[in-house]
Design a protein around this nucleic acid. Structure first.
Lengths: 231, 231
DNA sequence: GCAAAAGTGTTACCGGTACACCCATGT
DNA sequence: ACATGGGTGTACCGGTAACACTTTTGC
């Protein structure tokens, strides 16, 4: 396409390149991921994460954005590269190199009808089915990346409602790391970070006393390098 | 090639896929990287890291191994994926998606003649020339990855001689992080890790008293999850 | 009053840091 | 003897973990 001369590039093999995106959401105190039944052979009907092929005019980031738009009808999603999977025989249907990503979305904001239409289903990270090819590996690598991210940045903005309580944030961290952080110590740690803004309003959904709502301070998002939890 | 039926895969674009490898070495108390003058247009003669195209029957790891064999004539090299670079216009010569890797080698063990032949040159990480395309970005991303690795694993086995002193290891860490770690505290930290084996022999090259040689314990390599240095 | 979740206070401990100091040896 | 790098000891400080305790409110 861009070649206009006898070209060293032209003699090299070309390969189908895809992205596969682990879509994480948070609901009912659980970290969940969105899986789809594969729509064509090979392995038709088995569970997989959503993916798409990289087009000639797209960077991989753009491909993922397009896939997310088509999948959950959301834009401006937080996402991150996980790693590339390139074993020649990883996909029995043909030679495809795939770059895994993970994305964080608010489950309550996504397009449920669109997901239903394509047979998508949210699964708890602690209890999901086996997936095609190396997708199970992608999921576990993505979770590891997410945990790493959550260690050095206070995440939650992309997964929680815009207003949330410290208890909810605590529960999110419990779900991500699959362990219980001490509520007292967790909120003391948060207090040192200067990323959250306390509001006057209270959430009375889950307690009689009510818990103050918080939100992320503008401009502080994803700019922290604090260590949130110990490894 | 593997297609044998009307195939959904066949309709998708195919793209040239390359790997580019940041080769790190350690010499004269400095972390260095190996750069080459590009051998063809566009940007012929400008500095670049070594790369190669992924063949149909190769995983990316295998491609890197092949490139390293051809470049420095070494095998069984420690290497790690950095990230993918996929902007459509990143390479003015054509559409190429590149996966960046870094590799760690012992400078004194590599094939200097082979490197010379191709115009390769070792540059200190603190003072290297501008590179083609996004290679400068690859180098800085690779260094960040290496620092991250060195934070949670005691590295050195791949960069230092088989026998080394704690002072040398200290200097390596200084070079990687571009700061001075306190020698007393550094060696106390090492003592808690149970990865190094103290030998009876002493190195008398750089001091009158002599410093004990150490080596990495078998089986402990790259299996540590300790935090070596604070971020 | 009591249960239940929100939120605070107290204390002990561990690990990092800074830095002073001792050790061994060639010249 | 003294300079030089190797190596050890110590004292302080801050963050973390464990956990007891108080607050608020609906029932």
């Amino acid at each position: 396409m861009m070649n206009n001369a006898p070209d060293v590039y032209a003699q090299h093999p070309k390969i189908s390149v895809a992205v596969d995106c682990v879509i994480f959401g948070y609901e009912e105190d659980e970290l969940k991921l969105l899986l789809y039944p594969r729509r064509f052979e090979p392995n038709k009907g088995e569970w997989s994460i959503m993916g798409g092929f990289v087009r000639h005019d797209e960077s991989m980031d753009v491909t993922v954005k397009r896939v997310l738009k088509q999948t959950v009808n959301l834009e401006n999603i937080y996402m991150e590269q996980v790693r590339a999977y390139s074993e020649p025989d990883r996909d029995p249907g043909g030679r495809v190199i795939s770059m895994a990503y993970y994305a964080l979305i608010r489950i309550d904001e996504h397009d449920k009808e669109l997901v239903d239409e394509k047979g998508g289903k949210w699964w708890p990270i602690t209890n999901h089915p086996e997936m095609i090819f190396d997708h199970s590996q992608m999921v576990s690598d993505a979770l590891e990346k997410l945990q790493n991210k959550a260690t050095f940045n206070l995440i939650g903005e992309e997964l929680l409602p815009k207003l949330f309580t410290l208890t909810q944030l605590n529960s999110l961290y419990n779900a991500i790391f699959q362990r219980e952080f001490n509520p007292g110590n967790f909120r003391k740690k948060l207090a040192t970070l200067d990323v959250l803004e306390k509001l006057k309003k209270k959430d009375t959904q889950s307690s009689k006393r009510g818990a103050f709502f918080y939100r992320f301070k503008k401009g502080k998002t994803n700019t922290q390098y604090e260590r949130i939890v110990k490894i």
